[in-house]
Amino acid sequence: MAVAARDGKAAAVRAPAAGGALTRLGRLIREVARRPAGLFGLIVICLLLVVVVAAPLVAPYSPYAQDIVHRLQGPSLHHLFGTDELGRDLLSRVIFGARIALGVAIPAVLIAMFVGLLTGLISGYLGGGTDQVAIVGMDAIQAFPAVILALALLAVLGPSLRNVVIVIGVALAPGYARVVRAMTRAAKQNQYVEAELSLGASTTRIAVHHLLPNIAAPLFILIAMDIPSAIAIEAGLAFLGLGVPPPSPSWGALLADGFSYVLISPWAIIAASAALMLTTLGFAMLGETLRDVLDPKLSGTRRRRKKR
């Protein structure tokens, strides 16, 4: 079994050698699912995706339907997670909240990745003055804790779904830029870059064809690891009232509302935090497993391969 695992991993790492992209993806997923943490992450994320896509079908009520008579109830057969202070079904709100969580986190992380990829490639490849300017920019952004920066920007831009996405994207971009920059600088040292230059290849060609493919894998790991941060930031902003405006059922807003009534009924907080916790844990575990699978050099001292 151990041998099989090693073969599978080798194939996943040495990606280009093995068939099409789909086969490779399949092999990667199988390799991730073989590890308990990875399996957990995959299951959580798949469930989440199903819930997000099929929210109206899965949710028993509308997340906005109020039922003042049955407000602040505990879990029951009618309301599995109970109801909030306006009598809205908490399960439905948590389910629709997943849409907001992922709807913010995924585009935000993608924005961060594209911005970071571009800046990192340019500053890493060109070096010199461009690089220095880019570094100062990244430092300026990273000098603030992500949540504080997002808060400040949102205070200026005004809270809306779009602005939350942009702000989180900006706050996370320097992380990608740094990774890409460092890897570009390392990859640039390879002799094939000079060989390409001597054939007359343009900067763009070298960056896109010869540097990008060599730095792509760690980006996927970073994305998986950053989605929980983005979700947490979004929830934090919503908790502080600067996120996606009400009555949208953002998990952070559920927490904030539940917080006001915590002495009467803790169920809103329990439901929202459970959702938050499971989601972030799922992505974090997937990210870590991906890292272990894709780049064994990076993982810690933990034994990764289980003997059966």
């Binding site: 390879n190 002799q191 000079e194 001597s198 007359g200 064809h209």
Partner: peptide, 19 residues
């Protein structure tokens, strides 16, 4: 470039690995 070319020192690393 078509008239003057160079081959580089390290045979393994002077070829782009993903192609």
């Amino acid at each position: 470039r078509r008239r003057i070319q160079m081959i580089f020192q390290d045979p393994a690393s002077s070829l782009s690995p993903r192609f």
